[in-house]
């Protein structure tokens, strides 16, 4: 192995992959929630449809979207690599285990991540796949005919079990990010007396506010459909 691949494959190198992809996914979630909140504008979906159409056709966004898929796959593959390494390193487990010295979510990032993966598959199948390859009804905005993505989302969120599924998964994402946000900075070696308390505070707020805003979308749309 070259010095470069040895570095990437070291324990620390593997963790750097997790943190960089994790931070990218955090940035993505921020943009994603900002865009999707337009679903709640009471204009029959006009703003959201314009936004979704622009995102779907803008070449720059298309590149970022491909990157996003790549990063999430790297994040998942590396999480499997790390989890296997970690399980092998323990070997025989303890008869008594105590959770007194660490937080539950920090110890269960893999389990939380697995739920997120299931969520992602359902989410992508329901929306991304349908938007890209399915039949989407169209609507006319300012004389131009564009796909009516709003209608697809609105239809999905009229089922209560969908709404419950989303809310539960967003709680899981909150748990993952509550540990992951600050962990990613620590992994990168960014621990500093001045900035770490700030990073931890931002992470704690982020992990509550962003999933909460996301959860607001299906809940509000469901209530409006009643």
């Amino acid at each position: 192995m070259s010095w470069f691949s040895k570095t990437l494959n070291s324990t620390i190198g593997r963790k750097i992959f997790m943190s960089l992809t994790g931070i990218f996914l955090i940035l993505f979630l921020t943009v994603h929630v900002a865009g999707n909140l337009q679903l709640l504008i009471p204009d029959g979906g006009k703003a959201f449809n314009i936004y979704a159409h622009t995102m779907g056709t803008n070449p720059f966004i298309q590149v970022v979207s491909k990157l996003n898929f790549a990063f999430i796959i790297v994040h998942i593959i590396w999480s499997i690599l790390l989890t296997r390494q970690n399980m092998a390193a323990r070997g025989v487990g303890y008869a008594a285990s105590s959770g007194a010295s660490s937080k539950w979510n920090s110890r269960n990032m893999g389990a939380l991540g697995t739920v997120i993966l299931i969520f992602l598959i359902v989410h992508l199948r329901k929306f991304w796949y349908v938007f890209k390859f399915g039949e989407v009804p169209t609507t006319t905005i300012d004389g131009a005919e564009v796909p009516n993505y709003f209608l697809v989302v609105n239809e999905a969120y009229s089922y209560w079990y969908y709404v419950v599924f989303y809310v539960v998964c967003l709680i899981v994402i909150a748990g993952h990010l509550n540990h992951g946000f600050q962990s990613a900075f620590q992994t990168l070696g960014l621990n500093h007396k001045k900035y770490t308390p700030f990073i931890k505070a931002v992470g704690a707020l982020y992990s509550i506010i962003v999933p909460l805003l996301f959860a607001l979308i299906p809940v509000m749309m469901f209530l409006r459909n009643l």
């Binding site: 620390i12 750097i16 970690n86 010295s101 660490s102 937080k103 920090s106 600050q182 620590q186 070696g189």
Partner: peptide, 30 residues
């Protein structure tokens, strides 16, 4: 194994070695 930054090590360490060391190790290594 690898570090998931749970902090259990530092919490159980009889000498209270801090997690700042792990961040320094990562910086030093990279």
């Amino acid at each position: 194994g690898a570090c998931t930054n749970t902090g259990a090590c530092s919490a159980e360490c009889p000498k209270e070695i801090s997690l700042e060391n792990i961040a320094r190790l990562n910086r030093e290594y990279v």
